[in-house]
């Protein structure tokens, strides 16, 4: 019996009527855009009733200036099934707005989400509520920036000008790293 994504979709719609906001298909992959608040319920429903016991990946994308909300967190869930041909995959994604960088942790559904969520936090600064140990994982603990954000400039190793402009408008700019002001020469040079 091969698994049809449509059965899972229908059952989610019955269980949580407003959860699925959009369904997209591209190159044979089904991606569901889930309401952020319903993600935990949908995830545990998929695991309990449809056998999606395996979490393959969690990642995020920063759509700066392209989409609203700015960040999207992507979950890839997998079910094994009886034979090899019953394996099926679903992509779930949620939007995370810039002014409230929070998402619900799924570590209590899949323990493997632990490091994956830590990596998303490390690279994008999205805080997963309910995570048992949310620390930086790849970057040093005292690192101030989130490198995979689109406004992080690789060459300057600092968030680029756009961030500072916004802070300047809000009147809370710390001139330590501003690009408008020439860097002060240290006395050694």
């Amino acid at each position: 019996m091969t698994f049809e994504p449509q059965t899972a979709l229908d059952s989610i719609n019955r269980h949580k009527p407003s959860a699925i906001l959009e369904v997209t298909e591209f190159r044979g992959e089904t991606t569901l855009l889930i309401n952020k608040l319903d993600l935990h319920a949908v995830a545990s429903h998929l695991k309990r009733n449809h056998g999606f016991v395996f979490l393959a990946d969690i990642t995020a994308v920063d759509y700066l200036g392209l989409r609203n909300p700015r960040y999207e967190v992507l979950y890839v869930v997998h079910r094994f099934g009886e034979g090899f041909e019953d394996n099926a995959r679903l992509n779930l994604r949620i939007g995370v707005p810039e002014d409230r960088l929070r998402a619900t942790s799924v570590t209590n559904i899949w323990k493997g989400a632990d490091w994956l969520e830590r990596e998303v936090y490390d690279m994008f600064g999205i805080v997963f509520e309910g995570h048992p140990d949310l620390r930086r994982i790849l970057m040093p603990d005292d690192y101030d920036y989130f490198p995979l954000r689109k406004d992080f400039d690789v060459r300057n190793r600092e968030p680029s000008k756009r961030c500072f402009e916004r802070e300047l408008e809000a009147g809370k700019l710390d001139f330590r790293g501003s690009l408008d002001k020439p860097l002060e020469k240290s006395p050694n040079n």
Partner: peptide, 11 residues
């Protein structure tokens, strides 16, 4: 971990 992080995804 993280001692060998080179930022491949960003690069």
């Amino acid at each position: 971990i993280g001692y060998l992080h080179r930022g491949v995804e960003k690069l």
